[in-house]
Design a binder for these strands. Sequence first.
DNA 1: TTAAAAAGTGATAATGATTATTAAATTTTA
DNA 2: TAAAATTTAATAATCATTATCACTTTTTAA
Lengths: 130, 130
Amino acid sequence: MTIKLSNTNQRRVIIEELKKLTSHPTADELYEIVKERLPKISLGTVYRNLEQLSAAGLIWKLELSGSQNRFDGNVEKHFHKRCPNCGAVEDIEYHAFAEADRHLTNACQNYAIEGYTLEFRGLCYCCQSS
Amino acid sequence: MTIKLSNTNQRRVIIEELKKLTSHPTADELYEIVKERLPKISLGTVYRNLEQLSAAGLIWKLELSGSQNRFDGNVEKHFHKRCPNCGAVEDIEYHAFAEADRHLTNACQNYAIEGYTLEFRGLCYCCQSS
DNA sequence: TTAAAAAGTGATAATGATTATTAAATTTTA
DNA sequence: TAAAATTTAATAATCATTATCACTTTTTAA
């Protein structure tokens, strides 16, 4: 039951632009970027496609703290760090926490748990130096 | 700089009712409960107080996935599990993940990270049996 | 290849959670 | 105990997201 998505130009540009970024944009941030290539696109289309693409496993929907969801074109296993000051979201390479991840996954196995979400908190580079 | 809060009846009842529960209610769920004792209280008062109480460290604001924030009267160290089916939030006792927690905390120390939030996913008892 | 069916789009309205505003009431301070 | 500070209830405003719908594009299958 793989999800079937049509090949529309809007969808192609949305995923293409998202995969260029490492900034984990919100739907409206990505909308502003995509609009440069498709000036007629509507915000609803961006929301709808991000939802579908993440349901299809082609991107990640980051339901972290904060009022807006963010999206990630990198579906490799990795974690995120959120700046408590400005809200920016950065990647944390998996290897740094691989051992901790193994322990978590093992601990999960005794419980009726399917998985977990791990969100780190810490000042980003910009906020540290100001 | 401890936060100073007045001793209002509304505040007292809100924290009292929250601490009775292990269900991690949303602001509006707690509003319905508090209204039984204070029929004139307004939803805004509940929101404002929950915000203040969590800023003061007297309760926890759970910014988990899902569209509504939840609140927890138990400020002891523990984790949460969220049911992907019904959205219910359950406690997970710390000891089950204490070793994993130690590994995470150690891994954090090499980074500019202050802490982390860990959210487990898994069907709750109700959803498993239906 | 082409016509019917399915899926997607843009514009806009609607929803739902949360925050802001404000005049009146309560609590704290000195 | 009176002035200052804080909080409240009611309500409006905001912000992110989802729904609606007439129209267009893409897919399917003959």
